[in-house]
């Protein structure tokens, strides 16, 4: 009954706007995952789309071959991506900075070539993914996942675990001498990032209904990185805003026709010049909201400092 109601609700929205809306949701999931790895832990990854492709193909193949409930598919896609995250995290997370970025880039390219040559992924032809069997419409499914991921990220950033990740970003040697097992924490952060990318990939595969390994190349990884940097590294509201803006902007700039991407690029350059720490870098959204409502913000000494008070450049 609720499903039917929601179905009607979704049908009210124009299909074009619905698609933008869902794409924004998927982008938010991907950006939040990368934000944890790059923004919070400070490990620059240029291969985030690779984990997305693992999730997309895992989810797609499970739907086609096994027809399992969509929730099971979704979790399996995330776990599969996380598994690969741990697998490649072990060797490459010993690297730092540029070297790590190159290694993640290499991993993503290798994976793309492998997926282009496997029978199970239908090689270069790509997979057509049928509509999944969900009790509620897929767009709402996507946004429920978005809310869950946001909640998880807030909990992670305001915990002992999240503090350890920030310590690693700030000074790895000092973090290590404070008793933080930096390798283990980096791999865990990487695994969570991969897990959320897997979720995003699975949702993407079922929403777009067709996936091809070439969809998840370097430019896709850079798109996601853009969202995180534009929003403000380490800031959860920043990633949400960055993902929303960068997904919506190319659509709203359509009236400029062939100058569209030119303007889009120029906007990015200007934003980075005038807000080098990202739109919400160094801004506490909590304090802004309190100010707007006229409430005095409660000092948050008992817990860690506000996770929104973040945002810095990639080292």
């Amino acid at each position: 009954m609720i499903g039917e109601y929601l179905e009607n609700l979704v049908n009210l929205v124009d299909a074009y706007y619905l698609q933008i809306f869902v794409n924004i949701g998927i982008a938010i999931i991907l950006a939040l995952g990368l934000n944890l790895v790059t923004g919070v832990t400070g490990q620059l990854s240029l291969g985030h789309a690779a984990f997305m492709s693992i999730g997309a193909f895992t989810g797609g193949i499970l739907t086609i071959k096994l027809g399992m409930p969509f929730s099971v598919n979704l979790i399996s896609s995330g776990l599969m991506a996380a598994f690969f995250g741990v697998l490649i995290g072990f060797p490459i997370l010993r690297l730092s900075g540029d070297y790590l970025a190159i290694a993640t880039l290499g991993f993503a390219e290798i994976l793309k070539v492998i997926l282009l040559n496997l029978d199970i992924t239908n090689r270069a032809l790509g997979l057509s993914v049928p509509l999944p069997n969900t009790p509620i419409p897929l767009p709402i499914y996507v946004w429920l996942t978005v809310l869950l991921v946001i909640a998880a990220m807030i909990l992670i950033q305001n915990s002992r675990f999240g503090r350890a990740l920030r310590a690693i970003r700030e000074d790895e040697i000092a973090a290590e001498t404070m008793g933080i097992n930096t390798t283990l924490y980096k791999i865990q952060a990487f695994a969570i990032g991969a897990f959320t990318a897997g979720l995003g990939g699975c949702l993407y595969a079922h929403f777009i209904a067709y996936i091809n390994p070439s969809d998840f190349g370097f430019s896709k990884s850079v798109d996601i990185l853009n969202m995180v940097v534009l929003g403000g590294l380490g800031s959860i509201p920043g990633s949400v805003l960055g993902a929303s803006l960068l997904t919506a902007a190319p659509e709203f700039l359509r009236f400029m026709e062939r100058y569209r991407m030119l303007v889009y690029g120029a906007l990015l350059v200007f934003l980075m010049i005038f807000r080098p720490n990202g739109l919400l870098g160094g801004v506490s959204v909590r304090q802004l909201v309190c100010k707007a409502l006229g409430i005095k913000p409660r000092p948050r000494q008992s817990l860690s400092t506000d996770s929104n008070m973040e945002g810095r450049r990639v080292k």
């Binding site: 915990s159 503090r163 920030r166 310590a167 700030e170 000074d171 404070m178 969570i192 810095r312």
Partner: peptide, 23 residues
């Protein structure tokens, strides 16, 4: 020091050894 973090959080990270909860 952890430069971009607050004074309080710097010391909280020092207290890492006194806690247990992970991911």
């Amino acid at each position: 020091l952890f430069n971009e973090l607050s004074v309080f959080e710097n010391v909280l990270i020092g207290a890492h050894t006194q806690g247990k909860s992970g991911l």
